[in-house]
Design a protein around this nucleic acid. Structure first.
Lengths: 190, 190
DNA sequence: TGAAACATACCAACTGGACGGTATCATGTC
DNA sequence: GACATGATACCGTCCAGTTGGTATGTTTCA
């Protein structure tokens, strides 16, 4: 009947659009204020269409969380592959990904969303497990508190990025650069 | 008529109880899932009673935010007063307060709540302004990226504390100790 | 002084809108 | 034609906020 029916059906693309829309709206108004109607509308589809892909609100949120994690994964893997120095490699990649250097606005949304999902109690554990698994896999856990500090500071930057662009960009860059060199100095004697 | 009517009226205490209840419930289920009924019940009062003190849900959340900030203020001030070394004093106090060494469970709730409120878009700016004001007042902004890193890492610890007690406490303590010494080394040449 | 008059603190029941979810129908694709 | 995809209409529930009360404090004034 309507025009929407007549268009080419591309379920995979739509699914992605729905997730993108959900991410954007979550970041703008908070995960708790995410409304199915709004997500569907933003993706140019009816609520029925949305519920076809995600049978419930909960399912949508979980998919959102998984998408977040897998995006992180992909970017981390890319960074790891491009880094020849083994020591502190993971922490460096983590820093790079979390601080989101040279990243598109669309990627940025997903970064912010990560923090917001982290604040949701139902997804905290999921995140905790993700990080623990990665740390175990790259086995930097026993290395040095310096690496820990670098990663923690990366989280801090990530967090402060959420509060708008109030911080001086050059200062931010200097901090990131300094953190990066910290991981390259090698773990000195404690 | 009912027993509740007959009890001693202590509006100030009740107000505090309501805020405490709201904080606890927010941390447990997320700010977005905070229900007025539940808050009222947890404080041993009816929803009407709650709405007498906070005319709307929004008002309650704002009061919650203010309470959070003023609690931070008080603890920061206490740390500052107890620290004879001027250089990096604020960053040290910040680290101490945010990582919440030797803190009661009740205080801990408020710490966690801070992060959750930070994740709420409507309160992000409020927090950003708070921090900016404090940084300006103690004028550590121009000092050293090391101080920045310490504060950012403190945020990171704070954040990771939210994901349950999965981290090794002694390791956590080591990190905090190291961060502390970083602020005491003094700003070396960049 | 004390008791009316007012103000504050709270309760119980209700309402109206928002929103998640379902049921059913229409259309595209293989 | 059979299945996947998506639209429309509708229902039930949840919950913030309203309303109209009752009980407890506090002030005023005869």
């Amino acid at each position: 009947m309507t025009e929407a029916h007549r268009r080419k059906k591309q379920p995979i693309e739509l699914r992605q659009q729905l997730l993108d829309a959900a991410a954007t709206l979550s970041v703008r108004a908070g995960v708790g204020n995410l409304r199915l109607d709004a997500v569907a509308a933003a993706a140019g589809v009816s609520k029925g269409g949305l519920l076809h892909h995600f049978p419930s609100r909960q399912a949508l949120l979980e998919a959102l969380c998984e998408e977040c994690l897998s995006r992180c994964d992909r970017r981390i893997e890319a960074e790891l592959a491009a880094d020849p120095v083994v020591a502190g490699r993971f922490s460096r990649a983590y820093l790079q990904v979390m601080t989101g250097v040279e990243v598109t606005e669309r990627e940025r949304v997903w970064g912010l969303l990560s923090v917001m999902l982290f604040a949701e109690p139902e997804f905290r554990d999921r995140w905790g497990r993700w990080l623990a698994a990665h740390l175990a896999r790259h086995d930097e856990t026993g290395q040095s508190v310096l690496f820990d500090i670098v990663r923690l500071a990366a989280d801090g930057i990530w967090l402060s990025d959420m509060s708008g662009e109030n911080s001086d960009p050059s200062r931010r860059a200097a901090i990131i650069a300094r953190l990066r060199t910290l991981t390259l100095d090698g773990p000195e004697a404690e």
